[in-house]
């Protein structure tokens, strides 16, 4: 339960971070026509932050799944078999 809440908190934090970074006024900081590595700074910035957000989301969901698996193993000792393991579980394994 505690871990679940932790993951929820992480998601909210990431959401707020993304919300702040991809919206003015933070966005304005990169709003100039110079190019960085050949790409306009604003474009580069947005795509980098975007990729970062997706990466962190992936990390969080992976962690959620690990926590769940651990919890399930703990539970399995005294509880009847649960629904078949999630498909994403197989896919990732």
């Amino acid at each position: 339960m505690l871990k679940q809440r932790r993951n929820t908190e992480r998601q909210i934090a990431l959401f707020l971070l993304g919300g702040v970074m991809l919206v003015p006024p933070v966005l304005v900081l990169f709003n100039h026509p110079d190019r960085v590595a050949g790409i306009p700074s604003l474009y580069l910035y947005i795509f980098l932050v975007w990729t970062g957000l997706i990466g962190f989301t992936l990390a969080i969901t992976r962690r959620m799944r690990l926590d769940e698996l651990a919890a399930r193993e703990n539970r399995q000792a005294d509880v009847e078999p649960l629904a078949p393991a999630s498909v994403d579980g197989h896919a990732d394994a």
Partner: peptide, 16 residues
């Protein structure tokens, strides 16, 4: 881009 950044943000908190 906001048309696609918005859904990205929503999906971050999609689990909730």
């Amino acid at each position: 881009l906001p048309i696609y950044i918005g859904p990205t943000l929503t999906f971050i908190i999609g689990w909730m």
